[in-house]
Every structure is written in C-alpha cells, then in structure tokens.
Design a protein around this nucleic acid. Sequence first.
DNA 1: GTGGTGACTGACCCGTCAGTCAGTGAGGCT
DNA 2: AGCCTCACTGACTGACGGGTCAGTCACCAC
Lengths: 224, 224
Amino acid sequence: MTTKKQDRREQLLHVASDVFATKGYHEAKMDDIAAAADVAKGTIYLYFKDKRAIFTELIDGLSAQLTGAIIPVDTEADVVAQVKHNIRAVIGVLAQQPRVTSLLFDQASGVDENFRLKTDSFYRALKELLASSLGEGQRLGIVREGDPKLYASMTIGAIREVLVETRQKTGSKRTREQVVEAFFAVLEGGYLRLKSDPKGPKRRVYATIGPAPSKRRKAPATRE
Amino acid sequence: MTTKKQDRREQLLHVASDVFATKGYHEAKMDDIAAAADVAKGTIYLYFKDKRAIFTELIDGLSAQLTGAIIPVDTEADVVAQVKHNIRAVIGVLAQQPRVTSLLFDQASGVDENFRLKTDSFYRALKELLASSLGEGQRLGIVREGDPKLYASMTIGAIREVLVETRQKTGSKRTREQVVEAFFAVLEGGYLRLKSDPKGPKRRVYATIGPAPSKRRKAPATRE
DNA sequence: GTGGTGACTGACCCGTCAGTCAGTGAGGCT
DNA sequence: AGCCTCACTGACTGACGGGTCAGTCACCAC
C-alpha cells in the first residue's frame, strides 16, 4: 500500500537522477523520465509537484547527507584527525552516488537563479567550514601559513574534479581508498619535488600570457 | 563601415557574455540580451546565426586562448619550468576574462549534449597534457609517484574552483600573482604539516560516512 | 454481479521564446 | 528630386514541452 507508493516514488527519483545525469536538467524532458520509468507522464505528477521538485529533492538529499557527514572542528581535540575525517566523509558520500553528485556539481547552477544561489550558499558553507578548521590548524602550527580560504577552495575544487571525473570514466576504477590516500599525501607534501629554488629568491619563470616564446634559452624545444 | 559592423558584433558578444554569466544560458533570453545591448532582437540575428552560436563563439574563443597559451612539455628541457609556465598561463588567461570563464566552467555543460561533449573533450585534453608532463616529471624524479592523471585532475579542479570563486567574490581581491605563488607552494609542499604519522604504519582515522562516531575501535574497511 | 477506490494513462492545453520578415528611415549616389 | 542600400526594428509565428484532467482499468468488498 503505502510501501508501494513509496517504492514508486523512489523508483521515479532513481530513474530521474539517471536521466538528469545523462542528458542534463534542461535536455531531460518529463517524457524522457516517464519513458525511462516505464510510466505515463501524468503518473510522475502524482508523486512530485513539478520537474523542479524532483531535481530539488535529489540535490537536497545529497547536500543534507554531506552536511550531516561533516563534523565541525573541535579545537581542543585532534584537529588533523578531524580534518581528515571530514575529507574522507565528503569523498565517501559523494563517491557513493556519483550520478547525483554530478547533478550537484555541473547541473544545479544551470537550472535557475534560485538553484544557483542555493548551491552557492551550500558551497560557501562547506568552504567556510574547511577554511575555519584550516585556520585553527594554522594557529596550532599544523597548516602552512597563507589564506585558509584559498586552501579550502583548492581542496574542494580538487575533490570535486576528481569525483566528477570518476563518474565519467567508467573504466579505470580507482578505489575510494586510493583516492583518499593520494589526497592526503598531496595535502601533506604536495606532489612537486623540486630540488631547485626551494626557499631561495623567487625565480620567475613566465608571467606572460599567450603562446610561449618560440625560442627559449632555458628550454630549447628540440623535438621534431 | 566594416569596422562598424565589427564593433557591433563585439559589443553584442560582450553584452551577451555578461547576460549569460549573470543569468545562466537558459535563463538568458534573447530579449534580455537585446535589451542589455539596447538593440532590437532582430538585430542580433544579423550578426549571429542563433543563440547557441553566440555562446559557442564565447566558449571557443576562450578555449582557443587556453590551448594557445599552453606549451606541450618538452622532455629534454626543464620540465618543472614548463609545468609552471602552463599553470601560470592557464590562470592568466582565465583570470583575464572571468565572465567567460564562468560560462565555460558552470554553464557549458548544462546547455546541450553537444556542449557537454565539447567541454568534456577540452577538459580531457587539458588534463592529459598536464598528466603526461607530470608523468615525465615522475620519470625524472621531480614528481611524487602515484597516478599522474589523478594529480592532474586535482590540480585543474583546484585552479578551476579558485578562479570561479574569484569571479563571484567581488570583494577580497587576491592578486593573480598571490594565487599563483600560493598554488606553487601547495604543489611543492602541500599545506598540512603533520608531526604525527608521517611514514609510519597507516593510522586509519575514520572511513565511515555519517556523523563522527563517539567511540570506534577500528575503521572497518568498507570499500566498494 | 455492482459499486467504490485509487493508481495510472496520454491526448490535450497553453505559456514561452527562439527565430522571422515586412517595414522604416537615415544616408548616399545620380 | 527619386532611388537604392542597408542597418535596424519589433510584432508575429510556431514548435516545444511542462503540466492537466477526464477517462480507463484492476482489484476489492459486499
């Protein structure tokens, strides 16, 4: 009875997330969703107010899970562990529902002004959480000096990109654990191992924009 | 004469980029663009085939600039300098046209299936370029071992996030140079300064999803 | 059987907007 | 003057697609 209605609802949500993820919000027609769910269009409207509502529910569900998974940093306790936990948690939640993740990441902003605001504020909150914990870390000497908000953006952007990409590449499975480990490794020590200019006077390279100068003294492009 | 037509064209492009960036592709109506350009709707169609064409031209222009600014890595020469140059170049180009950048980053994928494919392949090319140069770097011992594609994704994602955010925050100006410097710093040495578990046995923290457990004996290796 | 319930259907309705095109008027040439 | 060109106009059109609702059908109770 009620279970059946519930099932249908969930089926529709599931199918919709698929169609949305495949075609994008605007290209996904209600008829497409109906067809994919093997249901008449009218049926969808027995379960959802309108198209937006379906999308909203998907996005909201994910962001609720995300905010629920993140713990606010307690200064008194082990800050590093908590930051680690948060990154793990974010990756974990997102990796578990790649389709909805891609909706949040590359469809939501294109739906609507309201949706843009919503995802923006969600993002901002996420970043501020991370940034403030990084700020704490700096006070404790665990985090490199510099703009914590910048670090937060970089971190979240990196996570985002990796996860969105994971969705697309059906082949080449990286384990979630591998990703998390690699992530921590980079956060801890970067990935460049420069012997040169480690702390010395800043050695400028190119500050220009545009095609690289064809003739460079330093790096002769002898390769034909 | 011809200059006048050219001027009009550029004016329209400029105005359109503004409207697109403000309202998003789908919410931006041709009437909006016309109004913003102080021109009748029909006029736009004297200069562009259709709405898509305007957007395409904006995006294509930017990606051409990007690919033009990037130099393929020459193994024989100073790989690090070249990678640095590439990152500088990318940031430089994007920071110069924040509006179009935001179109490329958060509107393009929502326009159309074709557009998604286009931006996807562009992205992929960008990543592969970076990844292969990182791979080179690994062979030369300059880049940490690990999946270079993963590093490439992280890097590009981080850049993207920072730049998109820069567009939004009108206040809090970070210099481009500051961003580049911070970026390099993180690539070189990460930002976490952990005294604990540096190389020792991997000390698992939380691998779970959900609010942090109050008490947990060991991380159950949940993986999928 | 008959009547009632409720999930489901899909043809239809109707607002929205990208794109069109007949018309206008300024400027220039003869 | 008359004529032509051409950038520009904006009312109009028609397709498209989100949303509706009168109708069907399976099932159950009596």
